[in-house]
Amino acid sequence: METILPWEGVVEFVTVVEQHSFTAAARKLGMSVAQVSRQVSALEARLATRLLYRTTRTVSVTEAGQQYYQHCRPLLDGLHAAEQALSHTQARPIGHLRLTAPVYYGETVIAPILLRYLRDYPEVSAELNLDNRKVDLVAENFDLGIRLGPMDASSLMLRQLAPRVHHVCASPAYLARYGTPHTLADLRQHACLVGMVEVWRFQDGQQQRDISVSGPLRCSSGVALRTAALQGMGLVQLPDYYLADALASGALVSVLERYTLCDAVWATWPRSRFTPPKVTMLVEYVQAALTRQESCPAAGDDIAGEG
């Protein structure tokens, strides 16, 4: 009797899920569409479970299929990692990479870097999840996370990638009409465009200071706050990646620079005896892309959180 290997059909199934198509999966695997379809059908038969819904135009994953995929993806990554370790090919990134980052920073900064990384390393595929919540990397099977701002103690690995500078700025028209603030106390006399917490944080020498502010607009969107500042509605405090173009063009003017707060952009990933090249090289790739004039402490080595 023919022995069925437990891996048969798994690679084909995972590839179909990630490529959203039998045709694309077959192309990626160097197989015919019929071969891929037969392997997936045999896997479903062996499991006695439908994993995919197929129509003439689309492929979608069943609830059972999604659960099975979540278990299979890390197994395939582990197999790739084992093969790399044994064959001494640690310098070559291969495999599928799951990355998460905050929405706006991910869209404007991380996504362009990731696209260049994928072009440079075509044996890597990636899934970029943009989410402003603090994603549990281990529970949700992410290889790497990009985090912004102060980091709590963690059992994850950390690397500081770059400084993040928070500017207070306004349009030239606003400053011409209402004047330029020179001290933190001056903020009480100004219209401040604030996020969902009406507190701005500053660095006053060696001390961080929280200043309560108020104004005509409170909004959870940094893009909307920047637009309001550009229209002369008030002062805004935002990280540098929201403001770089507007500051460079003079559309916004930075004020209170002696109190500028600087924190950091971090890469974080699950601690492991063997971190695959697809992760370590992407971290280095992102860090190199984010290199800028150091107005904060320099990016450092990998750090294991205290947990």
Rank of each mutant, 00 (worst) to 15 (best):
159 R>S: 09
305 G>W: 05
26 A>Y: 10
214 S>I: 01
82 A>S: 15
213 V>K: 14
78 G>A: 14
294 E>Y: 15
43 L>V: 06
24 A>M: 00
240 D>N: 12
297 P>Q: 14
24 A>W: 04
21 S>G: 04
72 C>I: 01
109 V>P: 01
289 A>I: 08
150 P>Q: 15
243 L>H: 05
22 F>G: 06
160 Q>I: 11
306 E>Q: 05
70 Q>G: 00
28 K>N: 06
292 R>D: 09
203 Q>D: 08
169 C>K: 02
43 L>P: 06
162 A>T: 04
230 L>P: 08
244 A>K: 12
34 A>Y: 11
210 D>P: 03
180 T>L: 04
287 Q>H: 13
163 P>K: 07
36 V>Q: 10
9 G>I: 00
27 R>Y: 10
109 V>H: 02
211 I>E: 06
217 L>N: 00
233 M>A: 10
117 Y>H: 06
68 Y>M: 02
77 D>E: 08
294 E>A: 15
182 H>W: 02
11 V>P: 00
269 W>N: 03
17 V>K: 03
179 G>M: 09
209 R>W: 07
26 A>D: 09
83 E>C: 13
216 P>Q: 06
186 D>E: 07
125 S>F: 01
275 T>Q: 15
227 T>R: 15
152 D>Y: 10
37 S>W: 08
212 S>F: 13
142 F>H: 13
191 A>R: 13
74 P>T: 09
256 L>W: 08
85 A>P: 03
243 L>Y: 04
255 V>Q: 07
83 E>D: 13
